Amino acid sequence: MSFSLSAQYGNGRYTFVFLNTNPNKAELSQAEVDSLQAGHMNNINRLVKEKKMIAAGPFFTGGGVFLFDTDLEATQAILSSDPAIAANRYILEVFSTDPIPHNAVKKTLCTLWDKNEADVEMAMNYYFVRYKPNKADENVAAVKTNRFTENLIGSVSKKSGRNTIIGALNLNDNEGQLIFYQSDIEGGIESDFAAHELVKKGLMTYEHDQIYFPKGVFCEK
């Protein structure tokens, strides 16, 4: 399995995992791909029932994310149980993370463990933004504060409504921040997030994508 070594440190409450599609994955038959995908989904459902995984969701452009209520060491042991990961279908990035406290978003995560699988609604209008520090810049230490991201959260909430941003997470050890938001505008409101002050200064880059994610994880209605 492939892990991002630079991201396996920190002491946050939660663990966030990026499953990046491996461009060098082995060529498999459709039957083999279907079997791995079935095992992948069964494993996700098992981890949710065991109250280890909070949520999982794919990006519309490929790959996806996991959110665990386990520390880094426990998470890395858990990841090996996924047949698609074991088959090297993904390149993983593993981060320690905590919610970003802000009056425009909830300060905690909500688990859906007590819900029946059939009652969990997967949202189609959710978008995801990832801010990454530009570690080649000598001023990158300024990224350690999420004050600039908090300012952006407030700005977007004021412009587009308090219910637009549903959750925000800080990746520990100066690894950036994540924002989940909802929008009925096709393509979302990417330009608003590109206006991040540190992105404009070149201290951060950002990624923006639509994500299929369980509704309620960020305590949103």
Rank of each mutant, 00 (worst) to 15 (best):
S2H: 03
S2Y: 07
L5F: 08
L5M: 14
S6E: 10
S6W: 13
A7G: 12
Q8C: 05
G10K: 07
G10D: 00
G12W: 04
N20I: 14
T21C: 03
P23G: 04
K25I: 01
K25T: 04
A31V: 10
E32D: 11
D34Y: 01
D34V: 06
L36Y: 00
A38P: 07
N42L: 13
N42R: 11
N45T: 14
N45M: 15
V48N: 13
E50G: 03
E50L: 10
K51L: 05
M53W: 09
F59C: 04
F60M: 11
F60A: 15
G62M: 03
V65L: 05
L67K: 02
F68H: 09
D69A: 07
A74K: 14
A74N: 12
Q76R: 11
Q76I: 10
A77R: 15
L79K: 13
S80I: 15
S81H: 12
I85N: 12
A86I: 00
Y90W: 14
Y90L: 02
L92S: 10
S96H: 05
P99L: 05
N103H: 15
A104N: 15
A104D: 15
A104P: 13
K106Q: 08
T111R: 07
L112S: 01
D114C: 02
D114N: 11
D114Y: 11
N116A: 15
V120W: 04
V120I: 06
E121F: 14
M122I: 15
M124N: 13
F128M: 01
V129R: 03
Y131K: 04
K132S: 09
A136Y: 08
D137F: 08
N139A: 10
A142T: 12
V143S: 01
R147S: 10
R147T: 09
F148G: 10
F148E: 12
T149Q: 02
E150G: 09
L152R: 04
G154A: 09
R162T: 06
N163C: 08
I165S: 00
I166V: 14
G167R: 03
A168E: 02
A168S: 01
L169E: 00
N170F: 03
N170H: 02
L171N: 05
N174Q: 06
N174E: 07
Q177Y: 06
L178T: 08
I179R: 06
Q182I: 03
S183D: 06
D184H: 13
G187H: 06
G187T: 07
G188V: 00
I189P: 01
E190I: 09
S191V: 14
S191L: 15
D192T: 04
F193N: 07
F193L: 02
A195S: 12
A195L: 12
H196N: 15
E197F: 13
E197I: 08
L198S: 10
L198C: 08
L203G: 01
L203W: 09
Y206M: 07
H208M: 00
I211R: 10
I211N: 10
F213S: 01
G216E: 02
G216W: 05
F218R: 03
F218C: 05
F218S: 06
